[in-house]
Design a protein around this nucleic acid. Structure first.
Lengths: 247, 247
DNA sequence: CGTCCCCTTGAATGAAGTCAATACGCGTGG
DNA sequence: CCACGCGTATTGACTTCATTCAAGGGGACG
């Protein structure tokens, strides 16, 4: 799934052959693998690389002193951890693998080279980081304003669409490796209540979630009950004025 | 309060005289003023500028179709709206003035010039935007895991410290223009419950909040009941290896 | 003086959490 | 092959935290 990043960036602008080769090359260096539930980097460590997830799901999470845990972001294939993180001296949160994960580490030198030599990629990466920030804001809205059903439904809509953007949806279903406990840690609900909420969504025929696979028979309907507005994902090829036209 | 940005950035690295002059110059062009409660930019509009708040408080907010409103960020003097926003075609949220606001608009050209000609400033702005992202994550934790008292206490700690970083705390108190309704829209609680929560904090002697002014007699104590860990603000002069040494 | 906004308070209601028990699938080792 | 343990999902009964509704108070301002 090395092409997930390219697929995603092309929702912003059309890349040239050279751009794509460059991205492929960057993704081929410094590949690392992690087992499910393994930490990729832990709070307090010094970040040395931008991680590009190429296979599997990962998450950012924060833990309170008393053990409460909040997942604050998911990384799907094609997702990057913060551009330029290595500016910071230490991580204020951890990143953990949810499934087995394959990622590419992008060091400072490679990143700077990319920024200097490939303006179109630079713009596209800026876009991806602005979208990541918008997602984080939307999660704030989700936790602050929506009730249990809306929250869970909203998260499912978002993840489904992001999987589609990465080219990982077949028909109306995609892989979905999260446990109900992890869902709860994401949407700020207890596991028990996540369970009841999912049953309600299932009962309404809005969601099929079984064997680590998510099916959404009618995305519009689910969006509607979630008050889901996809504008924050900025998928309308907003950078099309930058399109390459070399192939 | 034009120096709030410089003050803040110097929590990351020491700027040169030339850097400071450059920032002062940028902040002097294209100054705009807004009245309290006026919208600075509205969801759906095309962002043309990076806004730098020089006086007053503003906020980002999102509104659901049915009218529910969530404040997703505050801008204090010295705060910047997203670097490079003009990449996006339309705003996915609004920015509104809370008090009367003075801000400087930074256009694409000025921004690009800054990035090219002033690497130290560039790094410092990257740092500021990584901190803004960290704040957004911490809000996610706040809404997802903390109960009412912890939430309100946490928000007060954060805003107090950010005001201090901007040089706007005198002794142990600072301006605090938020109404209880706005606090509720921030921490995802009803106005009534915010009121009761504040009374509890007042009763415990942890907070004095009166006449738009916040006093925190014992910040440590408040941090402790909020489970507040300031690491996410990255204030330890993490970029000191970049320090200028020309004055 | 009346109006509007903000803060405050009480009582009733409701959404979600907690606790505890059970069920199910899967892999491991006896 | 089967027993056991473990992680995950499910269910019911009860509790708690926060919301809602409704009313009243105070200050600023026209």
């Amino acid at each position: 799934m090395r092409r997930a990043l390219i697929r995603k960036l092309e929702h912003f602008t059309r890349l040239s052959v050279a751009d794509k080769e460059m991205l492929t090359r960057v993704a081929a260096q410094r590949v690392r693998r992690f087992a499910a539930n393994e930490d990729i980097i832990h709070e307090g460590e010094k970040p040395e690389f931008i991680n590009l997830i190429t296979e599997g799901w990962a998450c950012r999470y924060k833990t309170l002193e008393d053990g409460r845990r909040q997942i604050v972001a998911f990384f799907l294939p094609g997702d990057l951890c913060d551009l330029n993180v290595f500016i910071l001296k230490e991580m204020d949160h951890s990143i953990g693998a949810i499934t087995a994960v394959v990622l590419s580490e992008i060091g400072r030198a490679a990143f700077d080279e990319l920024m200097l030599a490939h303006p179109r990629i630079t713009q596209a990466l800026w876009w991806e980081s602005l979208v990541a920030a918008a997602i984080q804001r939307e999660w704030t809205v989700n936790l602050g304003q929506r009730d249990a059903i809306e929250r869970v439904a909203h998260l499912l809509c978002e993840l489904f669409i992001r999987m589609r953007v990465a080219g990982l949806v077949e028909g109306n279903s995609c892989d979905f490796p999260l446990t109900q406990t992890q869902l709860g840690e994401t949407v700020g609900l207890s596991t028990v209540h996540v369970n009841r909420t999912l049953q309600e969504l299932r009962g309404a025929g809005l969601v099929v979630l079984k064997d680590r696979r998510l099916t959404i028979p009618d995305l519009r309907a689910l969006q509607s009950i979630a008050l889901f507005n996809p504008n924050y994902l900025h998928l309308e090829r907003e950078g099309r004025h930058l399109d390459a036209n070399d192939d």
